[in-house]
Amino acid sequence: MRNDINEAHDAEEDISSSGSDESKKRKVVVPGEVIVSGEDYLPGEGAKRLGENIISIRFGLAEELGRVIKVIPIFGAFVPRRNNVIIGRVTDITFYGWLLDIDSASSAFLPIEESPRFVNKNEMEQFLAIGDVVSAKIWSVKSKGIDLTLKGKGLGKLEGGFIFRVIPSRVPRVIGREGSMINLIKDKTGCQITVGQNGWIWIKGDNVDAEIKARKAIEFVTDKVHIEGLTDKVEKWFEENK
């Protein structure tokens, strides 16, 4: 189960728009601010062309990727996308499936057919009751709502442990490049950890102290706005908080 969850993260990281490559040049920009001038550049996500300038349309960190200029947000609510692995909490049970709170603006629905095994319509509550927590994948985002699935590696009901919330835009750094950050925290604490793209994080450890430490380490990571050399800082944090 642990490794499966890892793989789910890694897949997520590959398609996620913002990695944590520390060599890229970044600068803080506000909406309307000129990032670069010149016809050679192309506006990426969070940027647009205005005359000969590329301007920012988000508050965040501007980044040059070759000719493409994009702005990575550092604050803000979760905006769901297809294939995001998220953590959700069951809020209601209907005839056709479960309604979940995934901390997004539209309601999320898990159809009964998308459970990992056959669930009888009369026994839905035995599989997932109100207040239960799952790790699920978004398979469609429509204007009226989000559809989820539990079919996939590392997805399913989460048992034991606890969940807490971080700013969703900080999720990529909690995972780190190819999962480096989250793997470091798992190694140091021995906890199972699942990071939802919606900023909800599940931790389960052998004992309370390990669980508390894993959460504190993650909050140490998310409280930092800048991410240069963050892995080293976290290693050091573990040294200081043995």
Binding site: D101, G131, F162, F164
Partner: peptide, 9 residues
């Protein structure tokens, strides 16, 4: 975020 069953436990 409202409390979930597992967090409460």
């Amino acid at each position: 975020m409202e409390i979930s069953n597992l967090t409460k436990e």
